[in-house]
Simulated scan of single mutants.
Amino acid sequence: MARQQRVEPEVEQLWQDFHSRVNVSSEQLRSWLLTQGSGEEAFGADPDLGLPERGRRILAVLGKRKVDLTGGDIEVMRETVAEIEDLLDTRPTGGVTDEEWRRALLDLGHDPLLER
């Protein structure tokens, strides 16, 4: 009989928060990051070519099961949730345009135009 692995309640809540804030699929996020990194819509042979480190780390977490999370993954989830919440709380005024604000959120896997 296989032993079921348990996840700490704090990690369970963080997992739910992360997946509710990151509201685009891993494929959508990868496409966005590749397009942003290359400045064009062409993709190279290496699927991670040109992806920023933060984006790669978010994509790695999206590809994992809860029971496989590492301490580093948990930190990525915490940072991502906090940064998305900060950006959502500070809608642009002054020098930052709505488009720049949306792009910053999209870099983290959150599209403010999507309702979840």
Rank of each mutant, 00 (worst) to 15 (best):
W15S: 02
E83G: 07
E41C: 13
E10C: 11
T97Y: 02
R56C: 08
A42G: 15
Q4T: 08
G63T: 07
E99V: 12
G55E: 03
V67C: 04
V96R: 14
V81S: 05
E100L: 11
L114W: 12
A2L: 08
A104I: 06
T93F: 04
Q36T: 06
L69H: 00
L106N: 14
D17Y: 05
V24H: 11
S31Q: 13
L59T: 09
K64H: 06
G63C: 10
L34D: 05
E12L: 12
T70N: 02
G50K: 05
E12C: 08
G44L: 10
W15H: 03
G39V: 05
M77Y: 03
E40P: 02
E79W: 04
W15K: 08
L29C: 10
T93R: 14
E27Y: 07
V61I: 04
T80Q: 04
Q4K: 06
T70F: 02
D86Q: 15
A2I: 07
V24L: 13
W101R: 13
S20E: 15
M77C: 09
A60E: 03
Q4D: 08
L29N: 09
I58W: 03
R3L: 10
T70P: 04
E12I: 13
L88A: 05
E41G: 13
I58D: 06
I84S: 09
L14F: 01
G63F: 07
Q36Y: 10
S26V: 06
R6H: 00
V76E: 02
D111K: 05
E10M: 13
L106I: 12
P92E: 01
A2S: 08
I74C: 03
V11D: 01
D89F: 05
S31D: 13
E8V: 05
L108Y: 08
L33K: 06
L106R: 15
I84G: 12
R21F: 09
R65S: 12
G63I: 08
L108F: 05
D86N: 14
E115M: 13
L59D: 03
R21W: 05
E115S: 14
E75Q: 14
D98Y: 08
H110T: 07
P112W: 06
